[in-house]
Design a binder for these strands. Structure first.
Lengths: 236, 236
DNA sequence: ACATTTTTTATGTATAGACATTAAGTGATT
DNA sequence: AATCACTTAATGTCTATACATAAAAAATGT
């Protein structure tokens, strides 16, 4: 008797080995359940997970087809910078550079969904690994959504970490860029002439309400973002 | 009667609203099935999908707990550059700069898993949008794994696109970086002084056998990588 | 007090069966 | 040939039930 995992593995193998090619129709759940000697439910779960993984597409009545991918998937996990530094066995240091409540610029205001004259919390902080600057965090926080932020000094904990604890499961949008460093960035991050920065721009919100808008700026020579391993699963 | 999607939505709401906080134990499937008036299977599916999404962690006997996230997830889809250009309604042009079979450098050799004196196919190509260079593709292909590549001129189709069709579902590993441009990159991509490049490094393989190793080099000022929308689902 | 065994319990998986939903295919009608 | 309604086939979901498995908790023995 075959488990859904075994079946999923067999089907995946037939697809990646191109025994079944993009566009090809897979046998119906009915047919496969007979082939594998199990119920349709079991096959259903196997095929559903392959669909979740993007290997096949399923449509009622039309059946299940192997997908012709049009792009390469990549899933990234962006840890809090302290984690990243400590994982490299470096000493972590955090420095708050600026903290004030002010009217954000227009673009940030709309990103956070604030009123015309609503103030937000502005934070600028720097994170070191072994005494070398690794990340500049320039951030606006919506204090209407998070009044506790006004009470927090951020002297001892980075805003990223603080927010991750306080608002654990927001919606997120990221933009990644390679930028020329501004003069300030060059000074703060101790960059060499012409050294670029790797920028992560992040916007988070919960049910339509903006939480934070941040630019995480990294020295190009000291930062890389990598996908854990393979994109195609590798399930469990 | 509630569907697993409704239940999943209700549980998700209770988590994101922090009615259930990180570390909290959720009610058992049994208890929830009574609350929602359905069978345990239905609750199981709802909770399982929340676990897949990373919102909760489940362990036999111990139950289901809300996760305290330690990082921000981001899933990216990297389309073939032609798609990306045409989606912006720009005219696409492709130019093959170099094509030769040669011994790859040591690091590439190990990445592809080649023998000491095994040759590989080297390709260098440039992709334009509206006449402006957008991507430089510098690539090695394992011709032992893909003998057809030797027969392909790559005069009319980019290697990325060709490979996506030929090897649709490989394993993938990505590294993203902000780099200083080399002199050659500066010339080919028509970069300004000090303009950085956004580099995507990709390694693909199937069942241990290396397929390709590539550096996709983009002008920093003309490239951004973005996550589609939210990281936390947004399911179906 | 500590280690070992047993019990218990929540999740994990499978089954057999039912009905729902979607959309492809078919055939009749215009 | 185009449009309509009807049939049908494949996936989608749910139920009720059973047994498996992992690990926490309790009971037992030393």
């Amino acid at each position: 008797m075959r488990s859904y995992k075994e079946i999923r593995g067999i089907l995946q193998e037939r697809i990646t080995s191109q025994q079944w090619q993009p566009g090809d129709l897979l046998p119906s759940e009915q047919a496969l359940s007979e082939e594998f000697g199990c119920t349709r439910s079991t096959v259903n779960r196997a095929m559903r997970e392959l669909a979740d993984a993007g290997l096949v597409e399923r449509r009622r009545k039309a059946g299940t087809r192997v997908v012709q991918p049009k792009s390469h998937p990549a899933t990234i996990s962006i840890p809090v910078i302290r984690q990243e530094i400590e994982n490299k066995d470096q000493s972590y240091k955090y420095l708050l550079l600026e903290r004030l409540e002010a009217l954000p610029p227009e673009d940030v205001r709309t990103q956070l969904g604030l009123e015309q004259n609503e103030k937000a919390l502005f934070l600028k902080s720097l994170h070191y690994g072994d005494g070398i600057p690794q990340q500049l965090d320039v951030r606006w926080i919506n204090i209407s959504a998070l009044p506790e932020a006004s009470q927090e000094s951020f002297a001892d904990i980075g805003p990223n970490e603080w927010l991750l604890q306080r608002v654990p499961h927001p919606n997120i949008e990221h933009v990644f860029r390679a930028d020329k460093a501004t003069a300030e960035e060059q000074r703060l991050l101790q960059l060499q002439e012409c050294e670029p920065v790797f920028t992560i721009e992040r916007r988070t919100w919960i049910s339509g309400q903006g939480i934070t808008y941040v630019r995480l700026v990294h020295p190009g020579s000291r930062y890389r973002m990598a996908t854990r391993s393979s994109a195609i699963p590798t399930f469990n």
